[in-house]
Amino acid sequence: MKKVYTKPKSLKDAPFHYCPGCGHSIIHRLVAEVIDELGIRDKVIGIPPAGCAVLAYNYFDVDMCESAHGRGCAVGTGFKRAQPDKIIFTYQGDGDMAAIGTAETLHAANRGECITSIFVNNAVYGMTGGQMAPTTMLGQKTTTSPMGRRPDVEGYPLMITDIIATLKGAAFVARHSLATPAKILAAKRSIKKAFEVQMQGLGYSLVECLSPCPTNWKVTPVEAFKLLETRMEKEFPLGILKDVTKKAKG
């Protein structure tokens, strides 16, 4: 019997601390598989966020530089500008990227910083116990929107990926979901494309992954994955929002 599927080399042997059914570890694996396939483990610098994935450096077997909450794209900018031959990815949650880090994210994209951002959107603040996030959906109950998010009080889910896709400095912007194996593999293809766009120096690349948070959504992992399709993907439509390598169609 030939082994056809196993752990990527760019991940350490540490077991994940994430909750059962969490999407973070799946996305970690996708990023690590891409790093293996592109053979860039010794040129990659990862920048974990403040959030559930702050401990990403326990898992990624690449050099990692922690950033303060929301400042990943600024740390990445400083690092990439100082060492242009290195390949930088920031790994950020919805609070990190679209709340406190909005300015750092938008301006890094707008400057066309050649870094890649992996944006994990699970519509809540996970590590701190399930508070409302910028991407919390209308009517979605969280510990800080106990009556469900109301547009006239808590505003609307922030479509940061779509905003970034309008910026000329952004070279590749895609939104994916972990809802099914096929969609997980599609997300991996975009993550690989994002790294390739960075390596070709074409500008900023961003891959958003809709990810389940069973613990804070208060559902089972299997239900959480269904909710990705029935709720999240309705609010956050999937697709390649921008790809400068594709000729303008028709």
Binding site: M1, K2, K3, V4, Y5, T6, K7, L11, P15, F16, Y18, P20, G21, C22, G23, H24, S25, I26, R29, P181, I184, L185, P221, F225
Partner: peptide, 16 residues
């Protein structure tokens, strides 16, 4: 390998 693709813990190795 669908099981291995969705497994959050990378606990599954697939042989063929």
């Amino acid at each position: 390998a669908l099981c291995a693709i969705v497994c959050p813990e990378i606990a599954i190795e697939v042989y063929r």
